[in-house]
Design a protein around this nucleic acid. Structure first.
Length: 269
DNA sequence: ACGTGATCCTGGAAGC
DNA sequence: TGCTTCCAGGATCACG
């Protein structure tokens, strides 16, 4: 479910329910996530949450001496519910608060994660992450310089977390369409000026999705449990065989780097 | 350093 | 209706 906008929308949704509240219990029903949920997570009991931030697609819940690190994987969802709310299938973790509410993590596929990061002790997952796409640290020059000599498809290149974080499959497809770049093109054969257009497109498509509350796909629900009601207008993603709204050509699909890829050969070169 | 492919897991949708 | 097959928003790891 989550691409970066969904993670950011989740962060905005859960933050007011967590910040300045004290954790009264941590319930782990199934620790078999992407990595086993560490027992240290229990030491968060009694601590007060001071902030909820995001790095790439990870959420960091600041409990003073450490961060609880959450990743939603492919199918993870967060809800804020009364702690008495009956659990449903795949409700793996509850972070219970002094308000009687709890943050409940549900993840059918268990590709998500819940980790414990003591202050000053960076998890290996964060070691070589590229810049955040919505900051000035992510710019066209970086893409141009890093891409020289690279033969892999430009789509794989922008989805590489070492290059820039947070560009998932949907928005990679959409940004490449907006910039008029063929996703199959070798990253090293995209010009500086076209990387400028791509950089702008990535920032625009992500920011728009955040503004609209996250793209609604089949299993996204906002953190209060209500389904998100904005479906961002998608130009190419999931539209193989349909007509391109810009040129009328047929949108094609092809697997690139094991991910389904959609593009218009009339609009993208 | 780079590029490719396998892999973790479940459920919903599509196909027969 | 029921069974089978395919596919999915992510990210790591092993290998050539």
């Amino acid at each position: 479910m989550p691409e970066l906008p969904e993670v950011e929308v989740s962060r905005l949704g859960i933050s007011p329910w967590l910040i300045n509240h004290t954790i009264t219990d941590v319930i782990v029903r199934d620790k078999r996530l992407r990595w086993p949920v560490p027992d240290e997570i229990k030491t968060a009991v009694g601590r007060t949450i001071s902030d909820v931030t995001r790095r790439a697609k990870y959420l960091l819940i600041d409990v003073g001496n450490a961060d609880i690190v959450l990743h939603l994987g492919m199918s993870g969802k967060l809800r804020v519910v009364e702690k008495s709310t009956p659990v449903i299938k795949h409700d793996h973790i509850d972070i219970v608060l002094d308000t009687g509410k709890c943050l409940r993590f549900n993840d059918p596929r268990r590709f998500g994660a819940c980790l414990w990061q003591p202050k000053g002790d960076e998890l290996p997952q964060f070691h070589k992450l590229g810049p955040e796409p919505l900051t000035d640290a992510f710019d066209a020059e970086r893409l141009h310089v890093l891409s020289r000599g690279r033969k892999s498809p430009v789509k794989s290149f922008i989805m590489d977390n070492d290059v820039v974080v947070g560009v998932g499959n949907i928005y990679a497809n959409e940004a490449l369409f907006m910039a008029g770049i063929d996703p199959r093109r070798a990253a090293g054969r995209v010009s500086a000026s076209r990387y400028a257009a791509l950089t702008d497109a990535i920032k625009a498509v992500l920011q728009k999705a955040i503004n609209e509350g996250g793209t609604t796909l089949k299993d996204f629900a906002q953190s209060d449990g209500k389904p998100g009601y904005f479906a961002q207008h998608l130009n190419v993603y999931g539209k193989a065989g349909k007509a391109c709204e810009r040129c009328g050509g047929v949108i094609k699909s092809k697997v690139i780097g094991q991910r389904n890829t959609f593009f218009c050969i009339g609009c993208q070169r």
